[in-house]
């Protein structure tokens, strides 16, 4: 594998977006790009990552390779990332380490790190990314982040319901309750503020607040978030990158009684 990001912070943002959700991950590299999925220790949250060749300045993968890494270690190396530097990932044919090369031609500087790969036994789950859903919401990731931060302070359970009137996020704590209603809007001046809802039926689902607090860490990937809900199935919270691919979180709901 030889894959070069023209801006090293792209890869840093991707890794930082889920490094607190899961401890380790297998990156599956092929000529169609880098794909990964990992489940958190409590088996409630599934993270999926897709980095297609369009995200790279140059991308080459001669034979399919799996790269297992501890995310805490990789995140440490990526602290060196900045918008002035490119980052090339190299893995040899018999992979036992990942080489990260940061280059800042303007400053005549390069940095090289090696990360030992780990053998991770993990089941890949069959996730249909085109999964049909009863409700799809596209909204500002900034708005979503603020709503999650505000409401999760009040309760460890977070409810989402969508009706024709809009999307309602609500919490019911022991001493306080809160509710945020967001209605579809079109902001001609700033498209990222738009909120659109497409739905075939109403939904009402509850999730554990702590996972939502993890999910919003991915908001730096995109100023938009796509939410997909169906009754009694995991919700999908997806951040798509400008150049294709992105990071998705499938979150298992709490039981409805």
């Amino acid at each position: 594998l030889e894959a070069k990001f023209d801006d090293s912070t792209i890869f840093k943002k991707i890794i930082d977006s889920f490094k607190d959700s899961v401890t380790q991950i297998n990156f599956v590299c092929s000529e169609s790009g880098i794909e990964a999925q990992a489940i958190d220790d409590s088996r409630v949250l599934l993270v999926t990552v897709s980095i297609p060749p369009s995200c790279f300045e140059s991308y080459r993968c001669d034979r399919p390779t799996t790269i297992g890494v501890y995310l805490a270690s990789l995140a440490k190396l990526l602290k060196s990332a900045n918008t002035n530097s490119s980052l090339t990932l190299y893995v040899a044919d018999k992979p036992d380490e990942l080489l990260l090369l940061f280059e800042e031609p303007k400053n005549q500087k390069s940095m090289e790190y090696k990360l030992k790969l780990v053998d991770i036994t993990a089941d890949m789950l069959e996730v249909d990314s085109d999964m049909k859903s009863d409700v799809t919401v596209e909204m500002s990731s900034v708005e979503f982040t603020k709503t999650v931060r505000d409401l999760t302070q009040l309760s460890d359970s977070f409810t989402v319901s969508v009706t024709k009137d809009g999307i309602v996020f609500s919490v019911q704590g022991d001493t306080a309750q809160g509710k945020v209603l967001l209605q579809p809007r079109e902001d001609l001046a700033d498209e990222s503020n738009n909120l659109s809802i497409s739905m075939s039926k109403t939904i009402d689902l509850s999730f554990a607040s702590k996972y939502l607090l993890d999910i919003i860490k991915a908001a730096s990937i995109s100023n938009k978030i796509f939410l997909k809900f169906s009754d009694d199935t995991p919700a999908l919270f997806e951040f798509k990158m400008e150049k294709g691919g992105g990071v998705g979180f499938y979150l298992a709901p709490k039981y409805d009684d």
């Binding site: 409590s42 088996r43 409630v44 789950l125 359970s157 709901p253 039981y255 009684d257």
Partner: peptide, 14 residues
């Protein structure tokens, strides 16, 4: 206290 479902129960292994 609402019980929490697990993600594995919704997706099959590949």
């Amino acid at each position: 206290n609402i019980p929490q479902s697990e993600i594995d129960t919704f997706f099959s292994e590949n």
